[in-house]
Computed example of a mutant assay.
Amino acid sequence: MILEAAMLQVKPGMEQEYEESFRKASTIISSMKGYISHELQRCMGEEGKYLLLVKWESLEDHTVGFRQSKEYQEWKSLLHRFYHPFPTVEHFEKVNLNQGDFLIKE
């Protein structure tokens, strides 16, 4: 499993419209092969700043399966006009730690 993370900066005054478009776009990404889950977090300290986290079964499910699909073109048309600057997307993999080393509280 990999975690895709993107810090998103939405143009001022477009936050509500962006969130509505993101709701529509969520159905696109959630239908893709290898998709596990996603969440969008709104920054409490800076207007227009969001964090997108998407879990994929593999890196290729995102970089090839999604990014090279016709569905991605629809995703792009719904969301990319809101961003300035355009976000950098990064991918992470879980570090296996011995159980009991850390207590994680949610």
Results as ranks from 00 to 15, higher is better:
Ser26Pro: 05
Gln73Glu: 15
Asn96Val: 07
Leu8Glu: 04
Leu59Pro: 01
Leu79Ile: 08
Met7Ala: 09
Ser77Trp: 05
Ala6Asp: 09
Glu60Gly: 01
Glu71Phe: 03
Leu40His: 09
Tyr18Ala: 03
Leu78Tyr: 15
Glu19Met: 10
Gln73Asp: 14
Ile29His: 12
His62Asp: 14
Val10His: 08
Gln9His: 15
Glu19Trp: 06
Thr27Lys: 10
Ile36Ala: 09
Phe82Asn: 02
Ala6Thr: 07
Glu46Val: 00
Met44Pro: 00
Trp75Gly: 02
Asp101Cys: 09
Lys49Gln: 13
Glu106Arg: 00
Leu103Cys: 08
Gln41Cys: 09
Gln16Leu: 10
Pro87Met: 12
Val95Ile: 11
Val54Leu: 08
Glu4Arg: 05
Val10Glu: 15
Leu53Gly: 04
Leu3Phe: 14
Leu3Ile: 08
Glu39Asn: 12
His38Phe: 14
Ala6Trp: 04
Glu57His: 04
Gly100Lys: 13
Ser77Met: 11
Asp101Tyr: 04
Val54Asp: 01
His62Gly: 03
Glu4Ile: 00
Cys43Gly: 03
Thr63Asp: 14
Tyr72His: 13
Ser37Asn: 11
Lys94Cys: 07
Leu51Gly: 02
Gln9Leu: 05
Tyr18Ile: 02
Gly45Trp: 14
Gly65Met: 01
Lys55Ala: 13
Lys33Gly: 02
Ser21His: 12
Tyr72Trp: 15
Ala6His: 08
Leu78Phe: 14
Phe92Gln: 07
Glu74Ser: 02
Glu60His: 05
Lys55Met: 10
Glu4Thr: 01
Glu20Lys: 14
Ser21Ala: 14
Glu90Thr: 12
Glu20Gly: 00
Leu97Cys: 09
Trp56Met: 07
Ile2Gly: 06
Glu60Ile: 00
Lys11Ser: 05
Glu4His: 05
Trp56Ala: 04
Asp61Leu: 02
Lys11Thr: 07
Arg42Lys: 15
Ile29Ala: 06
Leu103Asp: 15
Lys49Trp: 03
Pro87Ile: 12
Arg67Glu: 13
Ser77Lys: 03
Arg81Lys: 15
Arg42Gln: 13
Gly48Arg: 13
Leu53Lys: 09
Ser31Met: 10
Trp75Asp: 04
Leu8Asp: 01
Gly65Trp: 07
Glu106Thr: 00
Gln9Ile: 02
Ile36Met: 11
Gln68Thr: 11
Asp101Gly: 04
Glu39Ala: 10
Met32Cys: 09
Pro87Asn: 14
Glu19Cys: 03
Ile36Phe: 03
Val10Leu: 07
Asn98Lys: 14
Ser69Ala: 08
Val89Cys: 02
Trp75His: 10
Lys55Gly: 03
